[in-house]
Each structure stands twice: as structure tokens, then as C-alpha cells.
């Protein structure tokens, strides 16, 4: 139970997000179909900082229901900090991110990965639910602001990733480039094969010498 926050505020955020996701699903039949396969899944997200617990429930009709309180048994519960969740939400490969992150997973991780993949693929329409709640003028302004923040976040994240990669490879020489590493691995593979062949040859020679002595 979220005791540190006003339930009305959390409910407003969840309602807007739920509305946006379900509207996107209506315009994306493939994702809607994928989500229907997960019907009955209850995902609990427990964030430590800020302390917040939310539940994502996949309804029988393929709609996603977001709530701050649920007594339904959870299919999977994920615990962690906000940065871990943000990393997972924007990850290109959620399975790898889940393994490498500090997130604690209790239950079956398969529906979590499937859900993240579906949601990450979607392009939510933030404006419609905001306009519905706040009216045309305020809703449109807030939607514009959210779009700009979202776009800035995506661009910054991509730019940061690219610049970090360049620094590690080129400036800092902290890690070899992928092609160099690949060539190094091929050399090792060739060496391993040569050693194996040499070992077999030595064994054969040893066997022949033993036979001649006898």
C-alpha cells in the first residue's frame, strides 16, 4: 500500500497511463492480440525510491488495468530502484537487462518480458486522455510538454549511449572495438583447434612408440 503519496495523485497518473496504453492498443491490433495471450497476468512493480507500488493487470478483453492496490495473487513481482525500472522500460533487450540489472524478480519472468516488449513497441497517444480529464487547452499544453520531455529523454539517452561508447572505445581505450575483439576470438579458436590436433598427433605417436617397444 502506498502510504507516502496521495492516492488521488497516483490514481490520476495511472488513469492517464492506462488510458493512453489502451488507446494505443486499440490502434495496434498485433500488440492487442499479444496482450490477450497474457490475460490474467498480474504484475506487481515495487519501487524503493520513491516508495511506490503499482500493479499492471491484463484483463480478459486484452486491456491493461493499472492500479495502486490489488489483492489478486501476483504472477510476477519486480523490486528495485527507479533507475533500474527506467533502464528496463527503455531496454532494447529486456531479458538481458533483467539479468544484468539489480532488479529483484519473484515469480515467472516470462510474462514480464513479454509485457515489456509489447509496451515498448507502442506509441502512446498522451493527448486524448489528458484532454478528456483537463479539457482542450490545458490537456493539449500538458501533452505537448510530455511529448517534448519524452522526445528529449529518448534523444538524450541515445546520445549519451553513443558518446559513452565512443569514449570507452576511442578516447579512453578502455575496451577494444567489437571487430578487434571478434578477430582476437577467431585467433583463439584457431589456436585451440591447432592445440587439439597436436594433442591427438602426440597421442598417436606415443601409442606407436609403445607398440614398437612391445
Amino acid at each position: 500500500m502506498n502510504t507516502d503519496h496521495d492516492p488521488a495523485v497516483i490514481t490520476a497518473v495511472l488513469m492517464a497511463a492506462e488510458g493512453a496504453i489502451n488507446r494505443s492498443l486499440e490502434l495496434d491490433p498485433a500488440s492487442a492480440r499479444d496482450l490477450t495471450d497474457l490475460s490474467g497476468t498480474v504484475l506487481a512493480v515495487e519501487c524503493w525510491a520513491p516508495a511506490l507500488e503499482i500493479f499492471a493487470i491484463v484483463e480478459a478483453d486484452g486491456q491493461l488495468h493499472l492500479t495502486s492496490y490489488s489483492e489478486q495473487p501476483c504472477s510476477v513481482r519486480v523490486r528495485g530502484g527507479l533507475s533500474d525500472f527506467l533502464t528496463l522500460a527503455t531496454a532494447e533487450d529486456p531479458a538481458v537487462t533483467l539479468i544484468n540489472s539489480d532488479l529483484e524478480i519473484i515469480g515467472n519472468s516470462a510474462p514480464l518480458i513479454a509485457l515489456q516488449t509489447i509496451v515498448a513497441k507502442m506509441q502512446p497517444d498522451w493527448e486524448a486522455p489528458l484532454v478528456e480529464v483537463l479539457g482542450d487547452v490545458a490537456g493539449h499544453q500538458l501533452a505537448n510538454l510530455l511529448r517534448q520531455i519524452f522526445r528529449w529523454g529518448q534523444t538524450s539517452s541515445q546520445s549519451l549511449r553513443r558518446q559513452l561508447s565512443e569514449f570507452i572505445l576511442e578516447e579512453g581505450r578502455l575496451s577494444p572495438p567489437a571487430a578487434e575483439l571478434e578477430y582476437f576470438y577467431q585467433e583463439i579458436d584457431t589456436l585451440v583447434l591447432k592445440v587439439d590436433r597436436l594433442e591427438s598427433r602426440l597421442k598417436r605417436l606415443a601409442h606407436r612408440v609403445d607398440n614398437q617397444i612391445q
Partner: peptide
Amino acid sequence: RLWKRFTIEL
């Protein structure tokens, strides 16, 4: 609507 929705959740 938010107050009622949270009540339904509880």
C-alpha cells in the same frame, strides 16, 4: 472520479 476509482480498488 479519482476518489471513486481508488475506493473501488480498495
